[in-house]
Computed example of a mutant assay.
Amino acid sequence: MENIFNMHQAKTQFSKLAKRVGEGEEILIARNGVPIMKLVKFEPAEAPERDFSSLKGLISEVSDEEWAAMDKEILSMWKYSESLDDN
């Protein structure tokens, strides 16, 4: 099957072309018969492994008591209401 389509053909047949690309086929899109782009199936890149070793020594451990104190402080900043809709 031909894989070069002029711009107008590509616009009118986009769903069909997208299906073919999804099945692994590469489609060339041309302007005036000259290929200007290629449709290819998207392959997500693997996320690189994160290296946090440069942070060593910059962050101290937080005890359960310190977390509880921070939670209490944050909760005290929030204003609670009986109703979110005051109308």
Rank of each mutant, 00 (worst) to 15 (best):
E61V: 13
A45M: 07
E61Y: 11
S81Y: 11
F42D: 12
S60E: 15
F42N: 13
V62N: 04
E46S: 15
I59Q: 02
S81T: 12
R50A: 08
E82G: 11
L75F: 06
V62F: 03
P48W: 00
E49F: 08
A68V: 04
S60I: 10
K41R: 04
S60N: 15
M77Q: 01
K41S: 01
A69K: 05
M77G: 06
F52A: 07
L55S: 02
W67E: 15
I74M: 12
A45K: 05
D51N: 05
M77I: 14
L75M: 07
E61T: 14
L55Q: 03
S76T: 12
K79A: 11
E73D: 10
M77Y: 07
M77D: 09
P44C: 05
S54A: 13
A68S: 08
A47G: 11
S83C: 13
S54I: 10
D51H: 01
P48T: 06
P48G: 02
S76V: 04
S76Y: 04
S81I: 02
L75W: 13
L55M: 02
E43G: 09
A45C: 10
S53H: 04
K72R: 00
S76D: 12
A45S: 13
F52S: 06
K41I: 04
L84M: 11
K56M: 12
D51A: 02
S54P: 01
W78F: 14
E73S: 08
A69C: 02
I59M: 01
G57R: 03
F42G: 08
V62C: 04
A47H: 10
E65Q: 08
E61G: 12
K72A: 06
D71F: 07
K72M: 07
L84Y: 11
E49D: 14
E43W: 10
G57A: 00
L55K: 05
A69Q: 07
S60D: 12
L55P: 02
E65W: 06
I59V: 03
K79S: 14
F42I: 08
E46W: 05
A68D: 05
V62D: 05
E66W: 01
S83I: 09
D71P: 11
E82Y: 08
A68H: 03
K56R: 04
D71W: 10
S60C: 03
S53A: 01
W78G: 14
G57S: 02
L58T: 07
S81V: 14
A47E: 15
S83W: 09
E49N: 13
P48V: 00
S53K: 00
I59H: 01
K72F: 03
I74F: 11
E49L: 14
F52H: 03
K56H: 14
K79H: 14
F52D: 13
W78L: 15
Y80H: 09
S83N: 12
S60W: 03
L55T: 06
K56L: 07
A47D: 10
